[in-house]
Computed example of a mutant assay.
Amino acid sequence: MNKNYCWVAQIDVFTKTPGKGNSAGVVLEADKLTSQEMQAIAFKAGFSETVFVQKSQVADVTLRYFMPEKETPLCGHGTIGAIWYYLESRPVDQLLTIETKAGILEVTYESASGTVSMRQQEAKFIPYDGESERLCQQLGIEVADLLPGKPIVYGYTGVWTLLVPVKEPKILAQMVADNQQFPKLLPAYPEASIHPFAPSHKSDLRYEARHFSGVKAGVLEDAVTGTASGVIGAYDLHYCSTRSFKERFTIGQGHALDRFGKVEVSAWYQGVAIQVAIKGTACEARQFSLSF
């Protein structure tokens, strides 16, 4: 890799159809790149996240994730895409550890199906400290559209997002957002994203969702989000499943951007802690050279 030149692969994740799902940029053999160079590449590539694959002293591989305007500790779809691209030419099942700024996580590659599963961090929830009426107004919905009896909370499995449960998928479709206003709506985590979701009427989905990115993300909306889908799995287990110690289901996302994709989510109790894993497919859309 030359100092001012690299190859970027566009990997479309949570789909097997190029142009659908969520795109991530992936740069292999990125050990010689500085943080400033990785940020410049991510800005020019323009994806919601670009992932840089490096060697690790404590895991099988290191992944660093850059939005167009900042580095983020973890990205679900970026992890699925990067590991799929890193391993898809090796036709054997593999279990890897990945070093991230959110900790060391496990990923599994299943060669027959071409899917990648990733463990996320232990789930955490914090009550929403803002005004629900003001939040709904900003999203273009009414307080009456919220799912009765289910709280709005900050959720974390590696990255903080605000979970907003609503009654119907059609409410998701009418939402609007201006993420420059998010810091005023999110006092505890002003750079967090907002992730509304609704119970689905489709037999193969439990929930449908949208994801409005945080103020410094460089994009307004992410098509299909892995980390936030994992948080929904933990939310479902903690707030909705009174008798279950494990839940497994599929979330659909991306309709609003015509980039629909599906995320398989598992959540289970390990003692009192909630553990989460997500699973998805990927495909290569294109490769392109980038100077920086």
Rank of each mutant, 00 (worst) to 15 (best):
V13T: 10
C6H: 09
T115K: 01
P169A: 03
L95P: 06
F288W: 12
T250V: 14
T100S: 03
A234W: 09
F212M: 11
I83E: 04
C75A: 05
S241H: 05
T15K: 08
Y235Q: 10
H201G: 06
F212K: 11
Q94R: 15
G21C: 04
K32Y: 10
R206L: 10
V272T: 14
L87Q: 06
G81C: 08
G114L: 03
T227C: 00
Q39A: 14
E88S: 15
T15I: 00
D222H: 05
C136G: 07
S48T: 11
E168S: 06
I80P: 01
F182D: 04
Y156C: 07
I278L: 10
H255K: 14
F43C: 03
P151N: 09
Y85L: 08
S23N: 07
G103E: 01
Q36N: 11
E122W: 09
Y235S: 08
A188P: 10
V265I: 07
N4A: 11
T115P: 00
I11Y: 05
S35Y: 12
E131K: 13
E37W: 02
G81V: 06
T97H: 03
Q120H: 08
N2H: 09
K167A: 03
A209K: 05
W84H: 14
K44I: 12
V159E: 04
P18S: 04
G230M: 00
L135P: 00
G214K: 10
K44L: 07
V92P: 08
A102N: 02
Y85H: 12
S213N: 09
V107C: 12
I232R: 04
F212Y: 15
E99H: 09
P18D: 05
Q180D: 07
A82K: 04
F125P: 03
T250M: 08
G78V: 08
S56Q: 00
H195C: 11
R210A: 01
V27I: 07
D204R: 13
H211Q: 11
V224Y: 05
T97F: 07
P151G: 10
V166H: 04
A228H: 04
S132T: 14
R210V: 02
L63R: 02
I83L: 11
S56G: 01
F47E: 00
Y109P: 03
Q138M: 13
V164P: 02
T17H: 00
E99N: 08
V58R: 15
A256G: 13
V231T: 01
L257R: 10
A102T: 04
P169W: 01
V92K: 15
S266T: 15
Q275I: 00
W160D: 00
C240E: 13
Q253P: 01
R259A: 02
K246N: 01
Q174H: 12
V153N: 06
C240V: 13
G271Q: 07
Q137S: 13
A40D: 10
S289L: 14
L96A: 05
L74I: 07
I104K: 12
P196N: 02
Q10C: 12
G130V: 14
K3N: 08
R210L: 02
F47Q: 05
P187G: 02
D236H: 11
A9P: 00
A42H: 00
G271V: 08
W268N: 05
S289W: 14
Q121S: 15
S244R: 13
E71G: 11
S23C: 10
F14T: 01
Q39Y: 13
